[in-house]
Amino acid sequence: MSRLARFFGFTEPNDRIMRMARLMVVFFPIISVTIMLSTTFYVIFIAEALGGGDFMQGMGLVGVLVVIQLTVQTIFDYPTGGIGDWLGQRYIISSAFILYGVVFYMVSLVTSATPFLFLVAIYALQGFALAQESGAFGAWFDNNYRVAMPEDTDRKQYGVFQGRIGMVFGIVATLSLIPGSILAMLFQRAWVFQLQAVLCVVVAIAVFKFVVDFPEVQDAREKRPSTGEYLQILKSGGNFLFGDKFVKYLII
């Protein structure tokens, strides 16, 4: 048994599950670095631009932008999840990272003279990208794990794997904050955002090429509801968001 199999808690690993494990252990750290590289100064950069160089003065408007982002994410989270189940998660994940790339490039252009509506567009696009990415990797892994490991009926090995991959993601995310800050000091913060934009496009292409479903999962997708039925499901999700008083007031 390989070290990778022991690390992820697989007792009887096969080629399929090991391929998935290798994909996750490569992609998750890369994604972690790509997204987290500018975390230490992202909000500060936006706040300073909004406040004309005054960080505290701009923080109030940053709060408005975050509300816009969360609202867009909440509205589109359910529909994009349904589309991912219909088309395949790799399309949704790739689309999300293309949008992340656009967002980071737009952020690199922000100055104190940038119109507020430009920043609204940035945060709205970011919310839409987050809605697409949300749960997509987990859904891809879950769908294919059922095919690769049918003997794991109690899902114990599944739980161990998810815990370990989450640990790897967290460690890499934390460590990536240091080089991000160093790069910002050496090359300016806008350069780091542009680097992230390029990395996001690379991730999108790699995901589209390598994060594919097993044939059994693809066959099951063909037997899923028709487009009309999916639209009805999406409509019911939208009705729930705005029909349930608690959820509606939570969004507001």
Score class of each variant (00 low, 15 high):
residue 10 F to T: 01
residue 170 G to R: 08
residue 237 G to H: 09
residue 120 V to I: 14
residue 127 G to M: 06
residue 114 T to A: 06
residue 88 G to P: 04
residue 181 S to G: 12
residue 119 L to S: 01
residue 211 V to Q: 05
residue 212 V to N: 12
residue 245 K to T: 12
residue 143 N to Y: 10
residue 8 F to Q: 09
residue 131 A to Q: 04
residue 121 A to N: 07
residue 126 Q to E: 10
residue 36 M to C: 09
residue 201 V to E: 05
residue 1 M to N: 02
residue 48 E to F: 06
residue 73 Q to C: 11
residue 169 F to R: 09
residue 16 R to N: 14
residue 103 V to A: 02
residue 35 I to Y: 13
residue 212 V to R: 12
residue 233 I to E: 12
residue 238 G to R: 10
residue 57 Q to D: 14
residue 229 E to R: 14
residue 188 Q to A: 12
residue 204 A to H: 03
residue 221 R to S: 06
residue 77 D to I: 13
residue 20 M to T: 07
residue 53 G to V: 00
residue 49 A to S: 07
residue 97 F to A: 00
residue 193 F to R: 08
residue 125 L to G: 10
residue 200 C to L: 00
residue 125 L to H: 06
residue 31 I to E: 11
residue 31 I to N: 10
residue 140 W to C: 03
residue 47 A to H: 00
residue 54 D to Y: 09
residue 134 S to T: 01
residue 222 E to G: 08
residue 102 V to N: 04
residue 10 F to G: 01
residue 24 M to W: 04
residue 135 G to P: 11
residue 235 K to Q: 13
residue 60 G to C: 08
residue 70 L to T: 10
residue 100 Y to K: 03
residue 245 K to C: 08
residue 130 L to E: 08
residue 78 Y to D: 01
residue 88 G to W: 07
residue 94 S to A: 08
residue 13 P to E: 12
residue 26 V to S: 09
residue 168 V to A: 05
residue 47 A to F: 00
residue 243 G to N: 00
residue 13 P to V: 09
residue 156 K to E: 13
residue 27 F to N: 10
residue 191 W to L: 15
residue 143 N to F: 08
residue 185 M to K: 15
residue 235 K to I: 13
residue 40 T to G: 05
residue 126 Q to N: 15
residue 239 N to S: 12
residue 100 Y to E: 05
residue 216 E to F: 09
residue 45 F to D: 03
residue 123 Y to M: 15
residue 130 L to I: 10
residue 72 V to P: 01
residue 233 I to H: 15
residue 25 V to T: 14
residue 95 S to N: 02
residue 164 R to S: 15
residue 67 V to P: 04
residue 144 N to H: 08
residue 52 G to Q: 11
